[in-house]
């Protein structure tokens, strides 16, 4: 449903992906309690494009990213990657597939092993996938990639705790790109960084995307950051896609009430505009994924909800070219 019409080869296809966690173990007397973190998610990603995934905490965006990489095993659906469904592969086969799909984490320092030097951290994927490289060749590759992400090669023997957040994130990025993967999942890569550093990391990601021909999945809670880097965007609420489409369309005319509320709540660094604009004040908190509301997940907080929203999950429909949403009362373009 997402960007079926954009040209280019499909790199990744996700169909009806559902990921559940057991939150209370099965016992003799009762069935296990399940939490559905990702619910029936489908999309297609073309080579070279960047997909932004936006949502609030607990909406399942990180779980979705990890389910695609099979760092968390999903229960239902398909993740089609290089012609194979990843859900059918054995752990060993998935391990080998990781050469082409990598991840960048939110907390840059925590994602680096504190007892390893920067050189060893960056070289780790190489030691796994290209074990035949000589020590000198490996060093050369590491230094080459360090230069590409803006790290001084002299830092190679330092340890992670000696770095600032921004530099640590560069190390994480270097590790992710050293095997020249095709797909990188970026899980909130700039939310832990200062504003002045955020821009540096985004600029670096944009540069690497061009140089290495990367396809990115960019997960963030921040609409503004997603807008800076993505071609397409998915809005997730309680594990479901509520709106999807190409960035330009979704950002200029959000159709789903939740997307509209998200835009309206995003702070704007302009005092006059901030005072003028009328905010959509959402009531209450997102519901717990442990007992989702019946019907549309957004219905308890939605100012447009009617009876049908409380009983039936709205189907996903095309809003206009390059934009789809799942809502009975979405803003549709005026009939042509």
């Amino acid at each position: 449903m997402l960007d079926q019409n954009t040209p280019g080869q499909t790199l990744l296809k996700v169909e009806n992906l559902t990921t559940q966690f057991e939150i209370e173990a099965k016992s003799f007397f009762r069935k296990p309690t399940m939490l559905t973190a990702v619910n029936d998610v489908s999309f297609e990603l073309k080579e070279g494009r960047t997909l932004g995934i936006v949502g609030e905490s607990g909406c399942g965006k990180s779980t979705l990213g990890r389910s695609i990489l099979q760092l968390i095993r999903a229960q239902k659906g398909r993740v089609v990657w290089q012609g194979k469904n990843l859900l059918d592969l054995t752990p060993e086969q998935i391990r080998l597939a990781r050469r082409d799909m990598q991840i960048i984490f939110q907390d840059p320092i925590a994602s680096l092993d504190p007892r390893m030097t920067v050189g060893d951290i960056i070289a780790e994927p190489l030691t796994v996938f290209e074990p035949k490289l000589s020590r000198a060749q490996r060093l050369e590759r590491v230094q080459e990639i360090m230069a590409a992400v803006g790290l001084v090669p002299e830092m190679i023997n330092r340890y992670p705790h000696e770095f600032s957040g921004g530099q640590a994130q560069r190390i994480g990025i270097a590790r992710a790109v050293i095997t020249r993967p095709k797909l990188i999942v970026c899980d909130e890569p700039v939310s832990a960084l200062d504003v002045s550093i955020q821009g540096q990391v985004i600029t670096l990601l944009r540069k690497l995307r061009k140089e290495f021909g990367l396809t990115l999945i960019f997960i963030s809670h921040d609409l503004s950051v997603v807008r800076l880097i993505s071609d397409d965007v998915l809005v997730l609420y309680l594990g479901r896609i509520v709106e999807a489409g190409d960035c330009a369309t979704v950002f200029s005319a959000p159709a789903h009430p939740y997307t509209q509320a998200l835009f309206s709540a995003a702070p704007i660094p302009d005092p006059k505009l901030a005072r003028q604009r009328s905010r959509i004040r959402l009531q209450g908190d997102p519901p717990s994924p442990m007992n989702p509301p019946p019907g549309c997940p957004f219905q308890p907080r939605c100012w447009k909800s009617t009876d049908i929203c409380r009983t039936q999950m709205p189907p996903t429909e095309l809003v206009r070219q390059g934009q789809s949403a799942a809502c009975y009362h979405m803003d549709r373009p005026p009939e042509a």
């Binding site: 990781r98 991840i103 994602s111 680096l112 994927p125 796994v128």
Partner: peptide, 14 residues
């Protein structure tokens, strides 16, 4: 559950 162990898994480490 620390991220660096997850990172090692994502790097394809056995």
């Amino acid at each position: 559950h620390r991220e660096f162990v997850e990172a090692a898994r994502a790097s394809g480490q056995k």
